[in-house]
Amino acid sequence: MFSRLLTSALFAGAAAGLCAALLQLFFVQPILLHAELYETGTLVHFGSESVVSAHQALPGFEPMRDGLSIFFTMLVYSGYALLTVGAMELAAQRGHTIDGRTGLLWGFAGFLAFHFAPGFSLAPEVPGVAAADVQIRQLWWLATVVTAISGIGLIAFGTTWKAWAPAVVLLLAPHVIGAPQPEVYTGPVPTELGAEFAARAFGVGLAAWVMLGSFAGFFWKRETARAQSLANA
């Protein structure tokens, strides 16, 4: 069974990760590179008197840097896929239907848990922004993802308010408590770039996660059918 789950997850993770990487390179990376011009001090922008052009010449595809990004995006989405396929198997053992179509919902839930819930209070950061200590933010990120997964699971599989009420508490708690914020704002990057970066990061994350869920459902169903036909042969 492990090899069946592993195969489904790696197919789904690699495919969705490749799509995510290409979307990121096209839509997110130019904003990141633009922001780095401000982060490094190459460009300086303050106040309403700025004369710095909003259109800068940016490097194109960089084989080493962007190749690594493609590799690590496929890797992280394979990690997401392993968790998703494991959870799908658990749901299937309890009689829930898993296929490419129901996988769309799983993908949406995964986006909410891994991207939107932590990003709601700790927005995707463009390089150069002021932020609290990275370890504290990572801890908060982890706690928020865990509570979001628990909350979404309770909403999806619970049948009464005994499940839904604690789910609401779990989903709200990290944001009511609040994410670690910087002491002062020192970011040199224009807010326009920061906002566009966060919006694009969310958009690409949503598209990639929905694909991941659908691919995971599709490959899980295919691998499960194959294992059953082998067992019956």
Binding site: S69, A123, W141, G205
Partner: peptide, 9 residues
């Protein structure tokens, strides 16, 4: 770049 674009701290 992946960490920034994927919303990790």
């Amino acid at each position: 770049d992946v960490r920034h674009a994927t919303g990790f701290p």
